[in-house]
Amino acid sequence: MNKKKILIIDDEQINLDFFDVMLTRLGFQVLMAVDGEEGLEMIREHVPDLIILDNIMPRLTGWELTKMLKKDDAFSDFRNIPIIMFSAMDAVKDKIEGFELGIDDYIIKPFNFSEVLARIRAVLRNHELSQQVVLREKRLTITDSLNKSLIYFTEHLKSPVLGMVESSKSLDVSDPKAVESFKQLVMAEAEQTLAALGGLEDEVKNLLVSEGSVRKAELSLEELEERFREHFRELHDNAGESA
């Protein structure tokens, strides 16, 4: 299983150290940055699965960083990385602003580590679920185009065959000229039928290739749960620890 990458951005070294030890023990890959600018570099370089961010930092604040990630087109590749924001301020206005910017959770310092872990789990799980929904939607779209293609290529198949049937009804087999022109017609109609079949075949293969790549990324709900159980089986052992 691939380790989930969590990036911690905090100007207090003690917090970084604490998260590093605890989250590494739980099987996460921990990345750290001491300010927003360094954080941005790390995001670009490592594309973490989750960002935990202090809101008050020198240089680039948590707010500013969040705003860049969510709104700036230069960072559109990182827009969907979930963010948990930390704050020493329990101000409703700040929380609302954070959520409006698109953060996934907001934690007040000082925090209880078990609670933080539970929140990390919830955020990662939600994120994974919404990605699975997107994948399934893609697959639905593919199935939908397949259905449509079947219908419209069938139109191309029907006509030539009907044409042959029609001509054969009025064919006078004793007239060599008529037989010859019937033969020409059958050849032409067969060619069109084969062209439509070839087109349909292409289309079906193409859709199957895309469907396969989407399916590969899909997880069942059980697999999803299993993935998270791995990381959080120690959750209870750590209950009570705080920073």
Partner: peptide
């Protein structure tokens, strides 16, 4: 009956 337009479309497609 297959109309001539359809026939021509199929010919062009092929």
């Amino acid at each position: 009956m297959i109309d001539d337009t359809k026939r021509e479309v199929l010919r062009l497609f092929a």
